[in-house]
Design a protein around this nucleic acid. Structure first.
Length: 821
RNA sequence: GCCGAAGUGGCGGAAUUGGUAGACGCGCUGGACUCAAAAUCCAGUCUGGCUUACACCAGGUGCCGGUUCGAGUCCGGCCUUCGGUACCA
């Protein structure tokens, strides 16, 4: 029988919508379950396989939980600000707002056709003033507390497009759009002080159930390193000193020179006149390099001496001060103490410029006078280190730090690789920054009562050297709120990661107008219980959101420490081994399949393809397998119309009283229930669906069973279909005689544990570890009763006859291994 | 370079704590139904050897070695693929 998917799918979608089946009553928070997928960027393109792969299976999980009695909240919204819409506008002249709103209309329709459990009353879009008003409000809260600040910082600048580029838009040092080489330029930019939370962001990793891999990525990104800051005085100069950060204070006696970043302000002060020309030339040459070139590890090390000398605080030795671009102004103090013997980079540099290499950590089982071929960076014994000689270097680290602190030469110090979050974008399609620049008063925040600072519609958003908003006279020119002088608004907009850093809170009441979100609901409903999205957001989005949540907690708006209690990443679906993209022309359009096989089959096939977190290469080869399963299922249920109405089943049957076939299906459906529940719970959809296929294969004998058993089995089968194929599930549920929608009246069937155990099990019999026979024995048989059966077996005899039995290993219900000689 | 994930039939993949490798599905082969085809249903399908056949034997989870009565699973050393990252002192 053909499965009329299109009628059945529209029938149930209409039913769900008419009855608001998936509206969540947020006032009830016992057994609450907040399930969230990363919201969608409304581009002109249709929903692609990646969206389906993210949303479909996650929805199945949410439905499974709903049937288990959870009060599930599953919202969806639109991450509507951002560069692509603006790029599209530059190309076509269509205003970003017009194209975005149109795209949202289209995408909403497509999302509804997926048949997910979204609570459409909670929909939100970030480009609406009611939403971005609160970006501005949060910005002001941070500003008040010194967590939003402005500083001069280098940014990626495309000389052709005359605009700033985000790091993500720089590909191999070139502008993503036009291919021009990107240069560094200094601009005044707004930052969020995420570094204040560095330590807490690390600690928080212990409180969340996230993939290890993702936590590790964040840890590496934050890059905590412990060590010391050491002060080097400058010879013949009492005004200046060089502070270096090191994780290896144990190697201090091996310092043979000091390196300062070329752009470090100290360089001008300490460079000797006769070295000035060389230093200036070097500084010029490094400026020409891109960040990529400069930080490339393949590039040979360069540098020039300044003529100045620094004094090693440990032994008062004079060592030369060089500038070299392998010292980064952005990390630590911008100055490095160089220990060529025990640091690879210093070793390379010293070898090239003939600087001395002094061994101060002796590798075990080597001699002090052995020549060093490469830097030795492991633990060894300290030598040439005065009173620390003989100490193990890992122990020496702490001892040297203590010595430094006691003598006021340095101090214990922790450094982070994490930088503050640059949020300014010289862009139109984003949240305006609510700051007014007054020539007299400086940075003046817009009063909260004046929010939102509306993004004007009428703007020349074409490219050209400055923020588009700067060219809108009406927008940019204002009076200073403090003194009334002519002033200007900040012309920039915020990074769209600001929007996505707190949207999960707004979902709870997207229409609230006197607060960013309903604090009462947020206290009850956050953290989000299950968050599902791509690995590509491992660091940026997921770190920023955690930072926001902690900040909101600190100002008393939420009562939890972390936004997302559990995180799952769906895998990536590729085509012919490559990421799908328009430019490659390898995009698979889900609609082709939806119209051919229906959404249930398509979503089930995506789940059946393989492990959810691994994704895989797209092929429609196997889709017919799922299609056949769905047809056979539909056919089966149609053979038993109204069976539960006519023969209502009991909750449990005594398995001994059943016929062989009844026993078989009764057992199988209970075993399936157990397996299916466990698999879905852990996002192992492929094996969950395989278990349903196994079930239907066993149901060939259902016809010959008692009617009540038929009811018992089909009721449970339909309840398992409902999460993974919601339309089919509802239909089958109804066919067998249920009056109401299963999702309106969620039901979870208890497993009959007595039905799980088989009477007999097959025990594998091995001789010397090789399988020789399998023999059926009564379940839980002890070795004593199994042994005679084993040794009676012809095949076993064949391999044991004439041999000495050395050992016998018995594992109950599993294996009997005989070791012979 | 460093960090991470993964390598199992013709293919997608199972094997949840070391215990019968290949569940489930695709494809393929044979059969049933049909005038015929499609669809559907039934059976078979890791490789090699031997056999009329049933059976039996040997090998087999990227490669080499180890631990163990027993390894896809644990340990050591490699190879390949895919992701992330780029001198962080």
């Amino acid at each position: 029988m053909r499965y009329p998917f299109s009628e059945i799918e529209s029938k149930w979608q209409k039913f769900w919508e008419d009855n608001k089946t998936y509206r969540t009553d947020l006032t009830k928070s016992d057994k609450k379950l907040y399930t969230l997928v990363m919201f969608i960027y409304p581009s002109g393109a249709k929903l692609h396989i990646g969206h389906w792969y993210n949303y479909g299976p996650t929805d199945s999980w949410a439905r499974f939980k709903k049937l288990q009695g959870y009060n599930v909240f599953e919202p969806i919204g639109y991450d509507a600000f951002g560069l692509p819409a603006e790029g599209y506008a530059i190309k076509t002249g269509i205003h970003p707002q017009d194209s975005t709103l149109k795209n949202i209309e289209d995408i909403r329709e497509q999302l509804k056709k997926m048949g997910c459990m979204y609570d459409w009353d909670s929909e939100l879009m970030t480009c609406a003033p009611e939403y971005y008003k609160w970006n501005q409000w949060i910005f002001l809260q941070m500003f008040k507390r010194g967590l939003a600040y402005r500083k001069n910082a280098p940014v990626n600048w495309c000389p052709k497009d005359q605009t700033v580029l985000a790091n993500e838009q720089v590909v191999d040092g070139c502008c993503e759009r036009c291919g021009t080489q990107v240069i560094q330029r200094n601009l005044y930019q707004w930052f969020f002080k995420i570094t204040d939370y560095a330590e807490e962001l690390l600690e928080g990793h212990n409180k969340i159930d996230w993939p290890e891999e993702t936590i590790l990525k964040q840890k590496n990104w934050i890059g905590k390193s412990e060590g010391a800051e050491v002060t080097f005085k400058i010879a013949d100069n009492n005004n200046d000193e060089i502070k270096v950060f090191t994780t290896r204070p144990d190697t201090l006696f091996g310092v043979t020179y000091v390196v300062i970043a070329p752009e470090h302000p100290l360089v001008d002060k300490i460079t000797k006149p006769e070295f000035k020309a060389g230093v200036d030339a070097y500084r010029e040459s490094t400026k020409l390099l891109t960040e990529i070139e400069r930080t490339s590890t393949v590039k040979e090390k360069t540098g020039v001496p300044t003529g100045a000398f620094a004094i090693n605080p440990m032994n008062n030795e004079k060592v030369p001060v060089w500038i070299a671009d392998y010292a980064l102004i952005t990390y630590g103090t911008g100055c490095v103490m160089a220990v060529p013997a025990h640091d690879e980079r210093d070793f390379e540099f010293a070898s090239k410029f003939n600087l001395p290499i002094r061994k101060v950590i002796l590798q075990d089982d080597t001699n002090e006078n052995d020549e060093l071929k490469v830097a030795f960076t492991e633990v060894g014994t300290m030598i040439n280190s005065g009173k620390f000689n003989g100490v193990r270097s890992d122990v020496g680290i702490g001892q040297v730090i203590n010595y430094l602190e006691e003598n006021n030469l340095g101090k214990r110090k922790i450094n982070y690789r994490l930088r503050d979050w640059l949020i300014s974008r010289q862009r139109y399609w984003g949240t305006p920054i609510p700051i007014i620049h007054c020539p007299k008063c400086g940075e003046v925040p817009v009063d909260e009562s004046e929010l939102p600072v509306l993004l004007p519609y009428d703007v020349d958003f074409k490219l050209g050297g400055e923020s588009p908003l700067a060219r809108n006279e009406k927008y940019i020119n204002v009076k200073c709120p403090k003194c009334g002088t002519d002033a200007k608004r900040d012309p920039d907009t915020m990074d769209t990661f600001v929007d996505s850093s707190w949207y999960y809170l707004r979902f709870l009441d997207p229409k609230i107008s006197d607060a960013p979100f309903d604090k009462n609901l947020a206290d009850k409903w956050t953290p989000v219980d299950m968050y599902v999205g791509g690995k590509e957001h491992s660091v940026m989005h997921l770190l920023y959101a955690r930072f926001f949540h902690k900040f909101l907690r600190d100002i008393g708006l939420v009562n939890s420490d972390e936004p997302f209690a559990k995180l799952v990443h769906q895998g990536v679906i590729t085509k012919d081994g490559a990421k799908m993209s328009k430019s490659r022309g390898n995009v698979v359009n889900p609609n082709d399949f939806i119209t051919r096989v229906g959404t249930d089959v398509f979503r089930m096939y995506l789940m059946f393809m393989g492990p959810y977190d691994q994704g895989g290469d797209w092929s429609d080869k196997g889709i017919s397998g799922v299609e056949r399963f769905v047809m056979r299922t539909y056919e089966l249920f149609n053979e038993f119309k109204n069976v539960i109405k006519d023969y209502p089943p009991k909750d449990k049957y005594d398995i001994i009283s059943l016929s062989d076939n009844e026993k078989k299906v009764y057992r199988k459906v209970n075993q399936t229930l157990k397996k299916f529940n466990e698999e879905i719970e852990h996002f192992r959809f492929n094996t969950a669906i395989a278990s349903l296929m196994e079930l239907i294969n066993e149901l060939k004998v259902l016809e010959s069973c008692n009617k009540e058993i038929q009811s018992y089995v089909l009721l449970r089968f339909a309840s398992m279909l409902a999460p993974v194929a919601p339309h089919l599930g509802e239909e089958c549920w109804q066919i067998i005689g249920n009056e109401k929608s299963i999702f309106e009246n969620p039901i979870a069937f208890a497993i009959d544990k007595e039905a799980l155990v088989e009477d007999t099990v097959n025990i594998a019999v091995q001789v010397n570890g090789k399988l020789r026979a399998t023999i059926p024995v009564t379940i839980n048989s002890e070795q004593d009763s199994v042994k005679p059966l084993v040794f009676a077996d012809d095949k076993v005899k064949k391999f044991t006859d004439g041999k000495t039995i050395v050992k016998e290993i018995f594992v109950k219900n599993k294996i009997y291994n005989i070791v012979v000689k």
